[in-house]
Simulated scan of single mutants.
Amino acid sequence: MHQKSHKITLFLLLSMSAMSAFAEEQIISATAGQLTGSFAVVNKYIYRGGVENDDVALQAGIEYAHHNGVAIGYWGSTLDYDPSDDSETKDHGFEHNFYLAYAQKINQDWHYKVQTTAYYYQDGGTVYADNGDARKTTALDVLGELAYKNLTLGAVVMLTDVSFANAGDVYLNARYRYALAQNFMLNSSVGASIYNSSRDDSMMATQNKIVFNEARIGVSKEIPNMAVTASLDYVVGGKDRFETNFDDQVVLGLNFNF
């Protein structure tokens, strides 16, 4: 829920407002739980302000949620770069996210979720510095969310040193959704990072420890009788730990739920 190796990004489409690729709930068994899935097409894949795919991206997810609150799932997306060990021969790649989550309602208005996610790139991946230092691209993080009605606050902590992040990096996110007329939904979010520079090395030289990454404002609408949601987001770009400026983006998407 990644950008080229010199930038910081992670996927967490669970935390993105309108472009989330996870399906709406579809009850399979009241006692066993719920199986949901989706397939999405977006004009570009933007994550935490950074460009993961500047061309049309295909994204898919599936999740099984038990009635006790435990859920396991997968989400993946095409990329316009290749972070794997075959990057010299390929100019595109695929991101795989595997997660385990636990969510519960506190009462009618409050609920929370904790989740750990493993990020894996097709064919693995290692990034090398000029001096021979190397970092893997496979990553692991943990997410905590607390929601009150339509407002959700979240924090993601990176647990491993990888080519795009240090262990201890924290991403903070706030999301707000509001139902509009004609079954339109207003989606908004803002995200910022606190970077852990104490684990910097020749591959990770933090220039700014606290940065604004992105803000989003958009609308989405479910197309009646088709299990399809169309969305439009405007993304205000911020920066990353290297002081790289992100451009503003317009993201269009169609999400097919099953």
Rank of each mutant, 00 (worst) to 15 (best):
K90E: 13
K90P: 02
D91E: 10
H92D: 06
H92P: 00
H92A: 08
G93C: 02
G93L: 02
G93W: 06
E95G: 15
H96C: 04
H96A: 04
H96G: 05
N97W: 12
N97A: 15
N97G: 11
N97P: 02
N97R: 07
F98Y: 15
Y99M: 00
Y99L: 02
L100M: 09
L100A: 12
A101S: 15
A101E: 09
A101R: 12
Y102D: 04
Y102C: 10
Y102W: 13
A103M: 10
A103I: 09
Q104M: 12
Q104H: 15
Q104I: 08
Q104P: 03
K105L: 05
K105R: 13
K105S: 12
I106T: 09
I106Y: 08
I106M: 07
I106D: 00
N107F: 04
N107L: 01
N107E: 00
N107Q: 01
Q108D: 09
Q108S: 08
D109L: 05
D109R: 00
D109E: 07
W110G: 00
W110Y: 13
H111L: 06
H111N: 15
H111M: 07
Y112D: 02
Y112L: 06
Y112M: 09
Y112F: 15
Y112E: 04
K113P: 01
K113D: 02
K113A: 06
V114I: 12
V114C: 04
V114R: 06
T116C: 06
T116M: 09
T116N: 05
T117A: 10
T117C: 11
T117V: 13
T117R: 11
A118D: 06
A118P: 03
A118L: 15
Y119I: 14
Y120E: 15
Y120C: 10
Y120W: 13
Y120L: 15
Y120Q: 14
Y120I: 15
Y121P: 01
Y121S: 03
Y121Q: 07
Y121W: 04
Y121C: 03
Q122R: 11
Q122C: 05
Q122F: 10
D123N: 14
D123R: 07
D123S: 10
D123L: 04
D123G: 01
G124N: 03
G124F: 08
G124Y: 07
G125F: 03
G125L: 03
G125P: 01
T126Q: 04
T126M: 07
T126C: 00
T126K: 07
V127C: 02
Y128A: 05
Y128S: 08
Y128C: 02
Y128K: 12
Y128E: 08
Y128F: 14
A129T: 01
A129P: 01
A129D: 10
D130I: 06
D130C: 00
D130L: 09
G132C: 02
G132R: 00
D133Q: 09
D133G: 07
D133T: 07
A134I: 00
A134E: 11
R135N: 03
R135T: 01
R135L: 04
K136W: 07
T137K: 07
T138A: 15
T138W: 08
T138E: 15
T138N: 13
T138V: 14
A139E: 10
L140A: 12
L140F: 10
L140M: 11
L140H: 06
D141L: 13
D141T: 13
D141E: 13
D141V: 14
D141P: 02
D141A: 14
D141W: 15
